[in-house]
Design a binder for these strands. Structure first.
Lengths: 287, 287
DNA sequence: CAATAATAGAGAAAATTATTTACATACGGA
DNA sequence: TCCGTATGTAAATAATTTTCTCTATTATTG
């Protein structure tokens, strides 16, 4: 378990001396990470053994181990631990958002199964036509992104956020086509229905969703993205970043499989944009 | 400067012993971070002083400092350092994408100016109506996201990716309204024109774009996002993640300013979704 | 309501371990 | 051959951990 989480758990049970050490941790994280045990003890006005005991209490093997674990915290946002309501300044919120985004990417990386990704990319690269489905602000954006990334590779792809349209497109799809559906919660029953319909018609389905959810079960290939949204209703974003990163990974894997074809198309698109809009070749593709 | 970057720079000039240490770093990062100098030296078949010298060469004050810096590395993906062309397997590409995303978030955090963010949030929170503009796959997505995030706070907001429509909307906008325009390259001349028109009409303009670019200059408030796209034409994504994180930060700051109003609206939207679609309250807002 | 035992907390000093410095040697190239 | 770099050995230093001890607090008992 992560060290600052443990500290949070112990919070009430700390002795006065230990509390002083914890205070320094929160108020001057940088110092704590770089200081030696003597410095830290001095500043907390405790003895070095107390610091060692503190580290042990938090599940570290030694003080050095403690420092390494501290430094490894996904992000230096120590304030992240304190009650949410305290994060008010722009600097605080920035730190908080970035910290959560980093953590989301980190956990995405750990959870992804390369074999599943390869399989998905194989299907996408070989598809005759690709349909990207997703509804609601978040998944609709993801579906749009899938289209945005894949058409650049020279693939035929469309996207829809409209349930009725999704069903019609599914009905129109043919064997050899691929449907990619995204649902953060995994409980989008309309998407489940589309997947079931697709299966009857031999259209391959790929889900980007919560592991074990109805949507995951209905798809022929499910890529699990399991990230807690946290309880702050204002802040549902980090999961979206993870989804975007996932799409990027899939697009890259697909690109590897289409290399020649894709570079050609991309170059044409790029030349078009460049000559049309800006003589400077540094123009970024797509804006 | 970041330690792995320095290592990359020194890469060619390392002596055989130092190279062995570097190899261990790449092949077993976890071990390197947790090992003592003796363990690390033993495994690299060098003497402890050589390890110290290696650390010094990389700009660290001591071996412990070296370990702390290693542990602080935004992402443990050591392969990130190795030449791009090696990334072929799903695991490689995943690591590569995630590492870049992490690096983008990291550099975004360092570059953002809290004062500018506060000023932008003040304007957004006080706006009568908000227009989000952006064209091309990437910025269009960003504009959509701005709408997606802000309407949840009870703000009046619309977005458009269509240049002609953008100009018409700008003409229709009134003092007290705010236009937020996104352009990754900063060279979207149509957006510049819209900003100029807005200024004449006393409509406040905020740009999310490259510092010092034409778009930045045309806006009344510019939030700089300066991230190199890198030279891999298949991989323009990490910048988008940074933009999304930025929008999240802005939305959060705005939410702080609208707290009561926003929580009410959000709760209504959420209740609506939950009762409509899924009895389970874990349903994520917006998908 | 003392008096005493038991226990947890904390530091001093010793012991251990890790790290650095200083010095010596070997090797490769000018 | 000579110089400089690379590396190791051993001594010195610094840091960390352990052990031991003291103190303060709380619980228990007469």
């Amino acid at each position: 378990m992560e060290i600052l989480t443990r500290l949070q758990q112990e919070a009430g049970r700390l002795s006065p001396s230990e509390q002083r050490i914890a205070d320094i941790l929160f108020s001057d994280f940088d110092f704590a990470v770089n200081a030696s045990i003597v410095d830290l003890a001095g500043r907390a006005e405790v003895s070095p053994p107390t610091v060692t005991r503190f580290a042990r209490r938090l599940g570290c093997q030694s003080f050095s181990d403690f420092k390494v674990q501290l430094a490894q915290t996904p992000f230096v946002g120590a304030r992240y631990l304190q009650p949410e309501t305290l994060a008010v300044s722009a600097a605080d919120i920035t730190e908080n958002v970035i910290a959560k985004a980093q953590a989301a990417l980190f956990s995405l990386h750990r959870a992804l199964d390369p074999a599943v990704l390869e399989a998905a990319a194989d299907r996408i690269a070989a598809a005759q036509m690709i349909y990207a489905f997703g509804s609601g602000g978040n998944s609709a954006m993801i579906a749009g992104e899938i289209q945005n990334r894949l058409f650049r590779l020279g693939l035929r792809v469309t996207s829809s956020a409209d349930h009725a349209l999704q069903l019609m497109m599914t009905a129109a799809a043919r064997p050899g086509d691929v449907i990619i559906g995204s649902s953060f919660s995994g409980r989008n029953t309309e998407l489940v229905r589309a997947f079931e319909l697709a299966r009857e018609d031999n259209v391959f389905t790929i889900a980007l969703t919560q592991t074990g959810s109805p949507v995951a079960k209905a798809a022929q290939l499910a890529i699990g993205v399991d990230l807690p949204e946290g309880n702050d209703i204002f802040r549902p974003t980090s999961t979206r970043l993870a989804y975007l990163a996932l799409i990027d990974i899939l697009a890259n894997l697909t690109a590897m499989r289409l290399k020649e074809q894709a570079t050609g198309t991309l170059r044409r698109i790029k030349r078009q944009l460049v000559t049309h809009r800006d003589p400077d070749d540094r123009q970024v593709l797509g804006d």
